[in-house]
Simulated assay, not measured.
Amino acid sequence: MANIAFLGTGLLGSAFAEAAAKRGDSVTAWNRSADKALALAPFGVKAAETSAEAVRGASRVHLVLKDDAAVEAVIAAAQSGLSPDAILIDHSTTLPALTAVRAERFHATGLKYLHCPVFMGPLAARDAKGSMMVAGPKVLFESVEADLAKMTGRLEYLGERADLAAANKLFGNAMIIGLSAVVADVLTLAQASGVNGEDAIRLLGLFDLNAMAAGRGLNMAKGNFTPSFELAMARKDVGLMLETADDRPMAALPGIAARMDQLIAAGHGADDASVLGIDALARP
């Protein structure tokens, strides 16, 4: 049984703390809003009045916080209670550049820190499903690998580069948010066309989205825009979509149309529609 702490017990943090306590760990939790930590008492989680009190005697300190500013402030406040061997496990979604600076500063001062963002919601956290990425010193990862594996369905160590998990978390969230926006527009088109929304979503099952993302995505990353669906034709289709939607709010397609117009004006109309990603290749 390990003595561990959770700093930040919102929806995800509380789910992690609850699951850890059910696995038999001795768990102490702290949250800015004390009631959220106190609500975990039925699961055997002890609530601490301060972050420094929460981490006292803990071998692992899990942070599930809103942003970089919260991570910095909470660690600074908790540091007086940290034992020399405690490992900070930061599950927060943060800016890659600030994550790299923070990790370098912590390691220089002797703090043991791993950045471990996740792709999972509260239910997945309770059931140890979803994915967790880890970036930081390999020796630290290996010392907690078995413990982290108990928290997730898939554990991916990305290497020692401190900001790599932060960057990959943004990649994944961009896909999730972008997909949500496009699906919203599909539902808007369905409404405008008098088609049941659930039927429209079922139709999307005809597509192998993973294969499309892998195939088109790799071609885009390589700068291969050999046409299979010309940008000009794709722009025509987007025009049909916007005309069908009429004055209904759209989440993604108007912005896509505007970008297509820019690229067509720049001479890319005969390239594949994936040329939408061309500017990503122009930067080092």
Rank of each mutant, 00 (worst) to 15 (best):
V275W: 07
G159M: 05
G223P: 03
L204R: 12
G8C: 01
L38Q: 11
G215Y: 09
S274Q: 07
A214P: 00
V134K: 09
L7R: 08
L11S: 02
N219Q: 12
L231K: 11
Y157S: 04
T50Q: 03
L158Q: 02
K169R: 11
S51C: 00
A184R: 14
A200I: 00
D35Q: 11
E145H: 13
W30R: 08
D25H: 15
T50I: 10
R216H: 15
E49S: 10
A214I: 12
M132S: 07
G159W: 11
F43N: 10
L204F: 14
T93M: 02
A200K: 10
F229R: 09
L155G: 01
G121P: 13
V55P: 05
N173H: 11
A184G: 12
L242E: 06
A162Y: 15
E72G: 02
K150F: 03
L240R: 07
R235N: 13
R32P: 04
A181R: 06
M175W: 12
S92K: 02
M1V: 13
L263D: 02
D246K: 15
G215H: 13
A58R: 11
R23E: 14
D261Q: 14
A47F: 02
A39M: 03
G159I: 10
L140N: 04
D271C: 10
R283C: 03
T152K: 03
G130L: 03
K138E: 09
A125S: 02
L204W: 14
R202H: 11
S83F: 02
Q79N: 12
D247R: 15
M250L: 15
A77V: 01
G267R: 11
H115Q: 07
G13S: 04
V55R: 09
G57H: 09
A58N: 09
H115P: 05
T244Q: 12
A192W: 10
R23Y: 07
E142K: 13
N168W: 09
K169W: 00
V183H: 10
M220W: 06
E142G: 08
F119C: 05
I87W: 08
Y157M: 07
D247Y: 10
T9M: 00
L170K: 06
V71K: 06
L170C: 06
G10L: 00
L253A: 11
A149F: 05
V118W: 06
L88I: 15
F119N: 03
G172F: 13
K46E: 05
L179I: 15
D25K: 06
D272E: 11
N219P: 00
K222V: 00
P137H: 10
G153P: 03
P122W: 08
D261W: 03
T244F: 01
K22L: 14
G44W: 07
L148W: 07
L203S: 10
A78L: 04
E156T: 13
L111S: 11
V139N: 15
